[in-house]
């Protein structure tokens, strides 16, 4: 693929097809872990890390094992197993060799196995028939878009705590409405591409 197309895939994944605000993937951490800016950054970093690893691992698995054996119908099972094992493995390695990173990402890693954004990116890469490089770039863009949405949301919610919200809307409901308004803003990027 040409360089310009790869850049387009990257920017598209951040702004136009933002994972949270346009594809609806990873809503749970988006609402759950967006109360503090620091937590949002930690979660974003953990997602970026696992997304890149999962993309490479599942791409190789699908092209080198499943496709030659015509076992594509096992994709869902194999991918989720690979992701679960990968997250566990990353956790163990970080704990042993990179204590500081483990302490920063530690509590977010177990949550990531069932984060639909991770399985989602591997399935989308496959469906779009991206090559390995484009898949990795797409994953990086998707993680950057996820982090962007999460950090923006955390910033807004820190201010929102001080606002006089009606009791029924406090917490998750107002967060969803804020997300809706953010999604309207992100719709504007669709015109760029």
């Amino acid at each position: 693929m040409k360089m310009s197309e790869i850049i387009l895939v990257f920017l598209g994944a951040i702004f136009v097809n933002n994972f949270v605000l346009s594809r609806f993937l990873g809503i749970c951490p988006f609402i759950g872990v967006s109360k503090k800016l620091k937590d949002a950054l930690g979660m974003g970093a953990a997602v970026l890390f696992v997304m890149l690893l999962a993309t490479v691992a599942t791409w190789i698995l699908s092209k080198a094992v499943l496709a030659p054996l015509k076992l594509q119908f096992l994709e869902t099972i194999m991918f989720i197993l690979v992701i679960a094992a990968l997250v566990q493995f990353v956790e163990i390695v970080l704990q042993k060799y990179l204590q500081s990173l483990y302490e920063a990402l530690g509590i977010y890693l177990p949550l990531i196995t069932t984060n639909c954004a991770i399985l989602g990116i591997t399935l989308i890469n496959l469906k779009e028939e991206y090559d390995l490089l484009t898949s990795v770039v797409h994953a990086a863009g998707a993680a950057a878009g996820f982090t962007l949405a999460l950090v923006l949301m955390a910033g807004i919610r820190e201010r929102l705590d001080l606002a006089d919200t009606p009791p029924a809307f406090r917490g998750a409901p107002i967060a969803f409405i804020v997300a809706g308004l953010m999604a309207i803003a992100f719709l504007g990027f669709a015109g760029m591409m």
Binding site: S22, F24, P167, A168, F169, P173, F176, G180, A183, L187
Partner: peptide, 22 residues
């Protein structure tokens, strides 16, 4: 049209949750 675009989903969800809270 906004309702079948992503923002409509988020906003409606917010209202449904507020309704259920109340």
């Amino acid at each position: 049209l906004l309702m079948i675009l992503p923002p409509g989903g988020f906003i409606l969800m917010g209202f449904i949750m507020a309704f259920s809270n109340r």
